[in-house]
Amino acid sequence: MYIIKKNKILTKELIIRNVKFLCFASYVQTETDVINFLKKYKNKKANHNAYAYVIGNRRENIYKTDNGETRHIAGKTILENIIDKNLTNIIVLVSRYFNPLYNLLEDWIKNGYATITRIILTSAQLEKINEQIKIGILLRPLNEVFLRELLDKNKINIVSRLIYRGDLIFTIIIDRNNSVLIELDNLIIKGIIYSYKILKN
């Protein structure tokens, strides 16, 4: 998974038959970042300000809006391009300005959103980040101390601890390539934990 360069606003413009698409993209890490970005770059003079954003190393927060465009013609198109580029912690805003003398067909409008988003994302400097996954671990309460020792040794925080039918379920978040997964496999072999699995967000 990748992020775009921080502290840099990307800007591109596309004109199709005198209809202007103005695109902005930025690194964001929180919804507050999103709000501040939109306050600065949404243009009230534009006919539509469609945007999409993805936040989190596991893409926990995804949002899109067509802002009055025909459904799925704008926000979904922007979001699909973000996902196709395997990006996170990013917002892409596309402002569209009508030409009163010429109305674009919906296919042309959708193509405009797709094209300008691809152009701006292709121009971005990317930085690879470690993808994170959420893991659920099932074990007997008597063996809790052994699992805690392993997690403490690897400096892994416990997100939640639940009791389920007399057993325990621990939830942790780790990098996908974390070697602790091998150690968890060994705990299964030793009978210290029953199993573990990757959980959905």
Results as ranks from 00 to 15, higher is better:
130 N>S: 09
130 N>E: 11
130 N>I: 01
130 N>K: 10
131 E>P: 01
131 E>L: 05
131 E>F: 02
131 E>M: 03
132 Q>I: 07
132 Q>C: 02
133 I>D: 03
133 I>Y: 03
133 I>S: 02
133 I>L: 06
134 K>I: 08
134 K>L: 07
134 K>W: 04
135 I>E: 01
135 I>V: 14
135 I>H: 01
135 I>G: 01
135 I>A: 04
136 G>Y: 00
136 G>W: 01
136 G>K: 06
136 G>E: 06
136 G>L: 02
137 I>T: 05
137 I>H: 05
137 I>Q: 04
137 I>L: 09
137 I>W: 05
138 L>R: 10
139 L>V: 00
139 L>N: 02
139 L>A: 02
140 R>C: 01
140 R>W: 02
141 P>C: 02
142 L>S: 09
142 L>G: 01
142 L>T: 09
143 N>F: 09
143 N>Q: 10
143 N>M: 05
143 N>S: 10
143 N>H: 12
143 N>V: 00
144 E>S: 08
144 E>R: 08
144 E>V: 00
145 V>I: 08
145 V>H: 13
145 V>S: 13
146 F>Q: 09
146 F>P: 00
147 L>D: 01
147 L>G: 00
148 R>M: 09
149 E>H: 08
149 E>T: 10
149 E>P: 00
149 E>I: 13
150 L>A: 02
150 L>I: 08
151 L>G: 07
151 L>I: 14
151 L>E: 06
153 K>R: 10
154 N>W: 13
154 N>S: 10
155 K>Q: 06
155 K>R: 07
155 K>H: 09
155 K>I: 15
156 I>H: 04
156 I>L: 08
156 I>T: 11
157 N>H: 07
158 I>V: 15
159 V>D: 13
159 V>L: 15
159 V>E: 14
159 V>Q: 12
161 R>K: 15
161 R>N: 12
161 R>W: 05
162 L>E: 12
162 L>R: 07
162 L>H: 04
163 I>G: 03
163 I>M: 10
163 I>S: 12
164 Y>D: 15
164 Y>K: 15
165 R>I: 11
165 R>Q: 15
165 R>H: 13
166 G>T: 08
166 G>S: 08
167 D>R: 13
167 D>I: 04
167 D>F: 12
167 D>Y: 12
167 D>M: 12
167 D>N: 14
168 L>R: 09
169 I>Y: 06
169 I>F: 06
170 F>W: 03
170 F>A: 02
170 F>V: 00
170 F>T: 01
171 T>I: 13
171 T>D: 14
171 T>R: 11
172 I>Q: 00
172 I>F: 02
172 I>V: 15
173 I>C: 11
173 I>D: 07
173 I>V: 15
173 I>R: 07
174 I>R: 00
174 I>V: 15
175 D>K: 11
175 D>V: 03
175 D>E: 15
175 D>F: 06
176 R>H: 07
176 R>A: 10
176 R>S: 11
176 R>C: 07
177 N>P: 05
177 N>A: 09
177 N>L: 09
177 N>T: 12
178 N>V: 09
178 N>E: 13
